[in-house]
């Protein structure tokens, strides 16, 4: 391509570049500079040396992390919560959307939809606050009902570590299943009605139509969402786990992201380099996961993120 022509096109787009200038500066400072900051995982970070001047130590921090006696527990805890979340969080919105789609448009359907969207707007702090109030063994609803049924006070659910994954996952379902179903409901509404009519003439029951028409309709959407979820398998979000975490349930609730926090800001002597190494391990695994899953999906179904 002649250079002149190229520069001409660039010159004509100068106002567009002007608009992009600020976002690009922002992107570099707030997204790419922190990536450069990851180098402290290979250094021994000190306040004086900072990111660029602390001593290089190679893979020492990673080695220390892999040989940490908590390492396997962390991975297991993280995977337990996220796979549980992935399975339930993927299926429930689909079932909800399929059920909603079976109903005719009307007040009932609208009401159920609007109701199930509401919790999405509740903040994670309030959600956890509500949860703690409701499951409080003394003054909460759970305590009251348990006492009414059995006459004894229940044990505190929060102090039982094994119940932590259930609390985490099902409170998430309560909050987001309705919201997650929107996308499927919309895909189903746009589906080909002629298929349904033809199937009805052939005598297909509604259940058969769900199975042979509705489910195939949402399959591409579901694939995309599953890829995106699968890429996050190693990243259980910090915010909710941290709020639900307490000294008694740590054996199930300490996941990679909270570990990073607890070893740095939560520790008496923060070890920034070590925590960054742990966090970086997490991000790299995620990056690999999402790339692999995307490739597999592309091969199997032609549906992929990129």
């Amino acid at each position: 391509m002649p250079n002149r022509k190229k520069w001409n096109r660039i010159w004509r787009a100068r106002q567009l570049y002007l608009l992009l200038l600020l976002p690009l500066v922002w992107l570099i400072i707030f997204k790419y500079v922190p990536m450069a900051g990851l180098q402290i995982a290979f250094r021994n970070y000190s306040n004086r040396g900072g990111i660029w001047g602390s001593k290089w130590v190679g893979f020492q921090n990673f080695k220390k992390f892999f040989s940490d006696r908590q390492f396997s527990t962390l991975i297991i805890n993280t995977l337990r919560i996220s796979l549980y979340q992935l399975a339930v969080g993927f299926i429930v919105p689909i079932i909800l959307a399929l059920a909603l789609n079976v109903m005719k448009n009307g007040i009932f359907k609208k009401t159920v939809q609007t109701l199930t969207y509401i919790p999405h707007f509740i903040s994670v702090v309030v959600l956890v606050g509500m949860l703690l109030q409701l499951i409080n063994p003394v003054v909460g609803l759970y305590g009251a009902v348990y006492q009414a049924l059995t006459g004894t006070r229940p044990v505190d659910i929060l102090s039982n570590p094994a119940s932590f994954p259930h609390l985490y996952v099902w409170s998430g379902i309560w909050q987001n299943a309705g919201w997650g179903s929107i996308i499927y409901v919309a895909a189903l509404a746009n589906s080909d009605q002629q298929l349904h009519e033809a199937a009805q003439i052939d005598g297909a029951s509604r259940l058969q139509r769900v199975w042979h028409i509705d489910i195939p309709t949402i399959l591409p959407t579901a694939t995309i969402l599953l890829i995106m979820d699968a890429g996050k398998v190693m990243s259980v979000g910090f915010e909710k786990v941290f709020l639900l975490q307490n000294g008694l349930n740590l054996s199930y609730s300490e996941v990679l992201s909270t570990y990073v926090y607890n070893k740095s800001f939560g520790a008496g002597i923060p070890n920034f380099s070590f925590s960054t190494a742990a966090g970086m391990f997490n991000s790299v695994i995620n990056l690999i996961l999402i790339t692999v899953v995307n490739k597999i999906a592309k091969k199997l179904s032609d549906t992929s993120l990129w």
Partner: peptide, 25 residues
Amino acid sequence: IMMLFTFTMIFGGGMIPNYLLIKDL
């Protein structure tokens, strides 16, 4: 340019590099 933006959706510096950036700024 779009790639530069989308890449940040799947990879990032994480908690501590972000904190150090905010501190340095």
